[in-house]
């Protein structure tokens, strides 16, 4: 991984809070991967903002000393896009979950993808609602037994990778949380990408699900081959539908260069909106149109 400089140290990112995640939770690995990427890329309080929705993932903001916004369940994406439009110079990260962005915030997920806002979305995908102690999520498979589906889940799951590709996202990838170095590298690539980057991060829920365990992911994931063409949207979509024994692809499914949403706003072509304080405007020209 490319280290920009040593301005930001890992200790600079340390806060006074200790994680409250369950031992073995994938969130620890995502946290570590993000901090490593932040140190490598010198993401700090001068250039970066973090946002999160509600779920176990959201606690992460308490453990990284970079200015952040803990929003509402499902609403981290519109918050983040508002921040990005106002200050396009910031690296804007969204930490979200499968319940957060595929159920409650599904509409925002789809629309942010099609608009290609220049933000990075890290989707903590544990296929269950954990913070509310174990109900079925939009990622839980058909037949999945949980507190909300004691006789088995009737709903079919949805893949955030397929949804993102179909919605027009320009960078769509998947990793397994415990591949920490690879995930760090992917987060850096996602942030470097101009436009929206979606990373589906597979992680087990050690307390409420014995379906998608660390063992499961270690045995059933594989990396997309070196000759895989990530610029073909149709092929990428087809690949994204793959899921099963030894059949879970990891890596960048899809990446294309397109102008980001923010690149196309004339008002911020020269400098971010917030570089200047609000100023009182003279309306005398407009008033003439009303007389």
């Amino acid at each position: 991984m490319f280290y920009k400089n040593k301005m930001t140290l890992i200790t600079d990112l340390t806060t006074s809070c200790s994680p409250t995640w369950c031992p073995g939770c994938g969130d620890f690995a995502i946290w570590a991967a993000f901090k490593n990427a932040a140190v490598a890329q010198d993401w700090n309080n001068l250039n970066t903002v973090l946002t999160a929705g509600i779920g176990c993932h959201g606690h992460l903001l308490n453990y990284v000393k970079i200015a952040s916004v803990e929003g509402l369940h499902g609403r981290a994406i519109p918050l983040a896009t508002g921040i990005k439009m106002a200050n396009s110079r910031l690296n804007v990260f969204v930490f979200t979950g499968d319940g957060d962005s595929l159920a409650e915030g599904g509409n925002h997920f789809i629309n942010a993808c099609r608009r290609n806002h220049d933000i990075t979305v890290i989707l903590h995908d544990n296929a269950i609602y954990a913070l509310t102690t174990g109900q079925t999520s939009p990622r839980s498979p058909h037949g999945f037994k949980s507190k909300s589906t004691p006789s088995g889940n009737i709903d079919e799951p949805i893949s955030p990778v397929s949804l993102a590709i179909a919605s027009g996202a320009t960078f769509v990838a998947r990793e397994y949380a415990s591949h920490i170095p690879q995930l760090s590298e992917l987060i850096v690539k996602a942030n470097d990408h101009k436009g929206i980057a979606i990373i589906d991060v597979l992680q087990p829920c050690v307390s409420f699900s014995d379906l998608y365990t660390h063992d499961f992911y270690q045995q059933n994931t594989y990396y997309l081959s070196k000759d895989y063409d990530a610029t073909n949207q149709t092929k990428a979509f087809e690949k994204s539908l793959e899921w099963g024994e030894k059949q879970i692809p990891l890596g960048i499914f899809y990446q294309v260069e397109k102008p980001s949403y923010e690149d196309q706003i004339i008002q911020i072509a020269q400098r971010p909106l917030v570089d200047k304080p609000p100023t009182k405007k003279d309306l005398s020209e407009i008033f003439k149109k009303y007389s």
Binding site: G71, T81, N107, L273
Partner: peptide
């Protein structure tokens, strides 16, 4: 006048975008 108007996907996004922009320092 140099401000941004954005048509969002719904009113939930509208207020959250405006809050995000305000948090970033913009009059929203």
């Amino acid at each position: 006048f140099g401000f941004i108007y954005k048509q969002p996907e719904d009113e939930i996004a509208a207020i959250n975008m405006a809050i995000g922009a305000s948090l970033a320092g913009a009059r929203s």
